[in-house]
Amino acid sequence: MNQRSTFIFSMLCFGFAFLYIPILLVIIYSFNDSRLVTVWGGWSIRWYIELLNNENILNAALLSFRIAAISATVATIFGTMAGLILARLRAFKGRLLFTGMIAAPLVMPEVITGLALLLFFVSLQNLIGWPSQRGMNTITIAHITFSMAYVAVIIQSRLTEINESLEEAALDLGARPARVIWDITLPIILPAMVSGWLLAFTLSLDDLVISSFVSGPGATTLPMLIFSKVRLGIAPDINALATILILLVTIGVGIAGWIMHRQKQSKTIS
C-alpha cells in the first residue's frame, strides 16, 4: 500500500505545485520594487499605486465589469429558458437544430465565433445600418450568445436530476403551467441559476478573442488592454492587477465553497 501512496502523494504535491507556483510568483513579484520584472528590488506597493492612477486600466476594468454583469444576467434568463426547453419539452418542431445551436458554442473555437459575429455585424450594418458602431453593445451580444449555452447546460443537467413529480402534482392539482414554473421549478433550480450566472460573468470577464473581433474603436475591455501590454513583454503593473483579480476570485470561490459545504451539512443532519 505504502509504495503506491508515496507515488500518488508525490504526484499530488507536484500537481498542486505546478498549478499554484506560477500564481504565487505573480503575487510575490507584484510587490517587487524593481522595474526589471525578474530582478528582486525589495518590497513595495508602488505598482498598486500606479495601477490606481492609471485611468486606462480603470476604464477598461469598469467596461469589462459592466459588460460581464449585463451579459451574465441576460444569459442566465435566456439560458434558463433554453435549459427548461431542453429538459422539459421533449418534442417540438426544430428541436434538433435547437440542441445543435446550444451545443455548438461550447465546442466552437473562440476565433471562429468571433470571426463569424464580426462578419455578421458588418453585413448587418451594410444592410440595415445597425449596429452603427461596434463596441460595448456588440461585445455584450456576443458574450450573451456564448455564455447562454453554458447556462443552458447547467440548468438542463440540474432539471434532469430533480424529480418531476412535484411539478406533476401541482399540474394535477390544477395549477397553470406558468404558475408551476414560477412557484416550483424556478425555486428548485435557483442554485443552478446562481452558478450559471457566476460562470457567465467569469467567461465574459475572461474573454479576449471574441471581444477583440467584435469590438470597435474606443471600446477596450480589460483582457484586451492586458493582452496588448503583455504582448510586448512583462509589465509590473499587470502583476499588481493580476494579484487583485486572483484575490477577488479566491475569496469568491472560497465563500461559494463554504456555503455549499454548509448546505450539504444541514441536509445530512436533517
Partner: peptide, 18 residues
C-alpha cells in the same frame, strides 16, 4: 477549481516571467 476561475490570460502571462 480555483485556478479555473482565474483569468486564462493572466495564468498564461504568469508563465512568461518564469
Amino acid at each position: 477549481v480555483i485556478p479555473f476561475w482565474i483569468s486564462f490570460l493572466l495564468r498564461v502571462y504568469a508563465w512568461m516571467g518564469i
